[in-house]
Design a binder for these strands. Sequence first.
RNA 1: GCCCGGAUGGCGGAAUAGGCAGACGCGAAGGUCUCAAACACCUUUGGCCGUGAGGUCGUGCGGGUUCAAGUCCCGCUCCGGGCACCA
Length: 837
Amino acid sequence: MRPWHPSGVSTLLGMADAYDPQHIEAKWQRRWETEGAYRVDNDDPRPPYYVLCMYPYPSGPAHQGHVRNYTFGDLLVRQRTMQGYAVLSPIGFDSFGLPAENAAIKTGVHPRPFTDARIEELKSSLRRLGASYDWRRELHSHDPLYMRWNQVIFQKFLDAGLAYRRNAPVNWCPGCQTVLANEQVLPDGTCERSGDLVTKRDLEQWFFKITTYADEMLEALDSLDWPERVKVMQRNWIGRSEGAQFALAVEGVDGAEIEVFTTRPDTAFGVTFVVLAPEHPLVEVITAPERREDVEAFVERVRGESDIDRQSNEGPLDKRGVFTGAYAVNPFNGGRVPVYLADYVLMTYGTGAIMAVPAEDQRDWDFAKAHGLAYLRTVAPPPGWEGEAYTGEGPRINSEWLDGITDTAVAKQRAIDWLVSNRVGERKVNYRLRDWLLSRQRYWGCPIPVLYCPTDGIVKVPEDELPVLLPDDVEFRPGGDSPLRHHPSFMEATCPVCGGPAQRETDTMDTFVDSSWYFLRFCDPWDEGEPVNADAALRWMAVDQYIGGIEHAILHLLYARFYTRALADRGLAPGGIREPFARLFTQGMITMDGSKMSKSKGNLVSPEKYFDTVGADSLRLFHLFVGPPGDDFDWSDQTDHMIEGCHRFLGRLWRIATGSVEEATIVERPPTGGDVEIDRQVHRLIAKVVSDYERWSYNTAVAACMEMLNNLYRYAQSAEGASGATLDFAVDSMLTLLAPMVPHITAELWERRHPEAAPLHAQRWPEADPEKVKVERTTMVVQVNGKVRERLSVANGVTEAEAVELSLGSERVVEVLAGRTPSKVIARPPKLVNIVV
RNA sequence: GCCCGGAUGGCGGAAUAGGCAGACGCGAAGGUCUCAAACACCUUUGGCCGUGAGGUCGUGCGGGUUCAAGUCCCGCUCCGGGCACCA
């Protein structure tokens, strides 16, 4: 059916059925899937493009945050496909994790069927949204095959020393009944998941040596096309600091040396005391007998403090430290300085001991003051300085061979040179980043594939026995102790080395392990010989566009960067692949009354009811239109109205594309000025939408389409009527531009208009004719003293002289000037002339 | 404390390179169609003054640069995020 009556003047009311989103959305979803429209093979000849949204934790039907995330991703998939790329668009589910296990404890339903049901619900939502994936590549982290590779990789890391086990003070969440990585503890000392106060425990735990890559990951950040704030967060988290490390001998204690790390070796002549962390192993060795009682009481008190107490820099400083009675010798000048303990010195950073220079460090100053300790300036403050510690630039003093040097960098270098040549110290770089604690004392995760043998120690489960699966016949009890610890047939094993009885590891892996390499597996999820197929990875990696929430700025994104490198260096992925995600986009959160939507708050707004009423296209359009994709959006009473507004727009699109606009007049005629103007507007629209898509400005792209549609209605309803050819070109162009945003309605309308042509998703992305994008005439603003007084229509190529002449000659300007002579005229043809009097 | 980001009508937001502030949408008011409603459509919609033409003020606050500032500079306020005894 051709939409416009082919001859003469006609009114086309009631020629077509009304817009019925439910019907057409189901139809096209079915068709895309049976056709495999978004399947892509690894030998596809088109240029590759990899789009990935962070795979979701399956918590049931989608919420608005999912809708937003997957709409952005789907838009890009569809647009790049129309642009001629082979687009890899996989999806999977981050299906291990605590909520399923907590549900099991509460209801008795095993996590596996529980999780599988939630996955089906979420998949149904994604399908109803119209998101286009290569479903053949679907991946679940709890799939035995994926678990197997997870375990193989773990063992390779173990062989390489990248995974290791040690006893360490670790973060324990009483709510989750498990340990947490540092990254999972919020700044206020609570668990990022449960909100419970995290405590410290000494436990044997598994770690990944992420610190090996600290420097490389820090440096490579510069090369990533990521939001600057995410890069800043990662830089801070890695926390590189350069300095020196050296030892101070302890007076009267043979062999006892205190290693300190400092970023200011240039101030070492000003050391007036040394401070150890209360947990420092030397404390017992060096404490003087007469100080023992006080020191032990102090250590005991600090041990009982939570991390938060310890890190809150309140409380009187004289109570936060204690004298050990020992003295250390400063190698720089032989100075004898007292050794203190203080709770603010952390055993986990640097060497657990610091040299204190009160004159150049405010903390040390405060501590010195509270304990009546001396200070010695080694950097001369400027004249008239009345402050306390001075951390600025100035000439060195009281520092023997450093005296007179003003440049801090030079002084540091000299100090380090001195340390090295005298063999008392070295240059040293320290990081805030700690190794990644990956073991979890929970059931619903990937088992760590090792055994403990009384004779052979830690032994890998033989590869042909992998994966170590989770037993199903387990009992979930309140209190949260891992059911694996109460499952004899799981725990009892045979040592593959000696054949004797061994005990199986009952800890499972942090679920962030699963998500640290899934994007590599997607490249070839069928490979049965190795976790990552090298050819496929070389073809698709890195992910060209990764899309997800800002909440993963550190956790997931840092772990994935580590894993990619670690796999590459172990030969498990091509060595050239260092960075997993070339471009990252972090979309804003959907909030309600300013706080995050969540099941527990009961403020979820289900997308399902919109699918059932206005349809997925209207909801998608709303999420694209409502504001910049990177900004948060607060859901409110008004939101439904805005969604209806988007639905209204689609209704108008439907009517104009099916030729059922009231009082529209369509004519066949040689092009008039009005026809040409509409044609030019369409080309400008194409150019705008294309550039808006590239700069993540979907809201303005939608606005431009709405404006165009308004113009088309005015055009079609005008007295002169619309040219059928012009209108057809305009409508077809709009359908193409809108296809990535609202795929169902556009596909349906395209099919109705062009039943014999290829479907819309197989059409080429339009290109604007640069000649037609150019503007011929512009409205030039004429200002007098910076105030707009007149608008003149001028040719685009108007010269400066012409523009000035036109402006000064305009009736209105003459009137406003009222005889005054301009002192200055600024002309910026063809946009603006400003006359100054 | 340090580092990022932000503040524009009643609301969400636009202004991409210093050059027409408020695009587009929502809401509101009035109207057309209808027996009525729904749908749809039309008009108005930053404040103040003015019947009108028009004038004037206006982008968190105070200064500045410029012919011209939401945009640049200096100094603040408030909101959001990150880091924080890290030696």
